[in-house]
Design a protein around this nucleic acid. Structure first.
Length: 544
RNA sequence: AGGGGCGUAGCUCAGUGGUAGAGCAUUGGCCUUUUAAGCCAUUGGUCGUGGGUUCGACCCCCACCGCCCCUACCA
């Protein structure tokens, strides 16, 4: 049977089922024809390598200041390569631009110089081809620094055309599905992902400099813990066990703190089987880091220092233009969660609560009821989760406090803000405050109305941790682990030093620093529904 | 998941209940410093898919598919 299977793979498919060529068919075939003509000239369509002397960017930055006279007097020889992105024929000569690493460089080819065969090759080139040019630099009549080509080489043939030169590719769906075209056509896209790489680099540099070591912990977890979220489920065949894609690395990183890795971090993907939105992709990148002997106050400071450092490096200052606002990272507003609720209480939501009122047992419930009964709760944007009366009853004071915060305050946290002292009820992995056990030593960072970070004094009492895990499991729900992670409890039972830890959303931080308003703009291949395939249309299950 | 919007040539977009349009790209010509090169000619469409109404549907109605926005879940 195995041989048959192999034969199946090797056997040419039914011609009708060949995936090539792609649309637009006519242009694809025309380019294939050009390719054959090029091969008739004895030119290899997909050669092995090209020794360039400069990138287009190096040419422009190094020789940009040279005048036409200087370039004539002292010839600068170059070999440079890139993708052909424009072609302007002029009979027996022609101009073109190549694009290399995001930079455009003009080349000039004329029959007299490149010869009959070279010019024939030039005429057979299509926009999108990768080419190498040998020549020297000069300035055109209009002053543009260009390469006077003495030799052209085809380095790779493009069988598909690029989008239109002026408007480029703007269809959002096409941009995400064919990111490779997006990257060629839209300079801004390349910039975003360059900035993203620098952000990650800067985060690493910051932590490395402070003695943190980078680790990689499992992506496949037998128990999905460390956060409240629905996990993806997968299966390992040999072990015949279901595994969860991790929703957070937290519990593994803290095992490492138990093991004596006092300062540890990981930058990697988390997976949450939840909704998609402007701010949510099912897989997203988190930086998580832990430091022994520190607490959440230390980490509020450390986090602000780290974010400020990244902003300074990337933006060249502490002000970042984001949409209609200027984000000022020079200082972070700090409010406790209860203070934030009071501070941002809407005018049309009844009497403004006080911190004392929110701190009293039953206080958050009466405040929620006041809010629900007010005009604010009925306004279009405020759509209180607690509005179904039946649901509300089972929420605890802590949960209601969290909801009130999200409802009245979160959207207003545009300038960088640290919110601290979260309800213990919604902070199962966090130490509680000694003076008020209803509050956890936890904080979150908000910018532009988005949560970008979450940290706390790590709970290291194994007995208390097990009690809280057990309560979670008893509560049930898709977002909560099905069982207590006993190995984690065992790890804590060996003694974990006091420690602070936090997670920082790399995608969201990138959004802020690239003025991107959808998380999909900062993820190279965001999750989309698989492309419609007419051949498989019939076997598609019905929608629901 | 609920509400709203969008889907027309490869790309960017017009358009009307009565023979489907432009620019760029393609193809054929002219053009040896242009640059959104230019000029002449040319090709390209199951108007997302499937039903329905109608003498006639790209247009009106329904369902489905995909994307975007808002809400919900969440970081």
């Amino acid at each position: 049977m195995r041989w048959d299977a192999a034969a199946d793979i090797l056997r040419p498919k039914d011609p009708e089922e060949h995936s090539l060529p792609f649309e637009p068919l006519e242009q694809y075939q025309q380019r294939q024809k050009n390719l054959q003509e090029i091969e008739k000239l004895g030119v290899e369509a997909y050669p092995r390598r090209f020794d360039f002397t400069h990138t287009p960017a190096e040419i422009l930055s190094t020789f940009g200041p040279r005048t036409a006279q200087e370039l004539d007097a002292q010839k600068v020889s170059v070999k440079v390569s890139g993708r052909l992105v424009s072609l302007r024929g002029h009979g027996k000569a022609g101009f073109a631009h190549i694009l290399g690493q995001g930079v455009r460089l003009q080349i000039y080819a004329k029959l007299d110089v490149v010869g009959e065969r070279g010019f024939e090759l030039y005429r057979l080139l299509d926009i999108g081809d990768i080419i190498g040019i040998t020549g020297h630099l000069f300035r055109t009549r209009t002053g543009e620094l260009s390469v006077w080509a003495t030799e052209l080489q085809l380095l790779a043939k493009a069988l598909l055309p690029l989008p239109e030169k002026w408007h480029g590719l703007t269809d959002i769906e096409l941009r995400y599905r064919q990111r490779y075209v997006d990257l060629i056509a839209n300079e801004k896209v390349r910039e975003i992902f360059t900035v993203r790489a620098r952000i990650v680099q800067e985060l690493r540099r910051f932590l490395d400099a402070r003695g943190f070591i980078e680790v990689e912990t499992p992506m496949m977890h037998p128990i999905a813990g460390g956060a409240t979220a629905r996990p993806f489920i997968t299966h390992h065949n040999t072990l015949d066990i279901d595994l969860y894609l991790r929703i957070a690395p937290e519990l593994y990183l803290k095992r490492l703190v138990v093991g004596g890795l006092d300062r540890v971090y990981e930058i990697n993907r988390n997976f949450r089987n939840e909704g998609l939105s402007r701010n949510h992709n099912p897989e997203f990148t988190m930086l998580e880091f832990y430091q022994a002997y520190a607490d959440y106050r230390d980490f509020m400071d450390l986090n602000e220092e780290m974010v400020r450092g990244v902003v300074q490096t990337i933006a060249g200052g502490l002000t970042v233009h984001y949409g209609e606002v200027d984000l000022d990272f020079s200082r972070f507003q700090r409010l406790s969660m209860r203070e934030a609720i009071c501070h941002y209480w809407p005018a049309n939501a009844g009497a403004t609560p006080t911190v004392a009122e929110l701190s009293a047992p039953g206080g958050p419930r009466s405040v929620t009821e006041r809010y629900n009964g007010s005009a604010a709760s009925r306004s279009k944007e405020a759509n209180p989760a607690a509005s179904p009366a039946g649901l509300e009853i089972k929420f605890t004071d802590g949960e209601l406090t969290g909801q009130l915060f999200e409802k009245v305050a979160e959207q207003h946290l545009i300038q960088p803000t640290t919110i601290y002292d979260f309800p213990t009820d919604i902070s199962p992995l966090s130490k509680v405050r000694k003076d008020d056990p209803t509050l956890a030593e936890r904080f979150e960072i908000y910018v532009a109305g988005m949560e970008i970070g979450n940290g706390f004094s790590e709970l290291n009492d194994p007995v208390e941790q097990e009690r809280r895990f057990a309560a979670q499991v008893a509560q049930g729900g898709m977002e909560v682990p099905k069982q207590v992670d006993l190995d984690y409890i065992r790890a804590l039972s060996h003694g974990m030093p006091p420690a602070a830890g936090m997670g920082l959303g790399v995608d969201r931080l990138t959004m802020l620093l690239t003025d991107a308003h959808s998380i999909r703009e900062v993820i190279l291949f965001p999750l989309l529904r698989p492309e419609a395939n007419t051949r498989n249309e019939a076997e598609k299950p019905g929608g629901n």
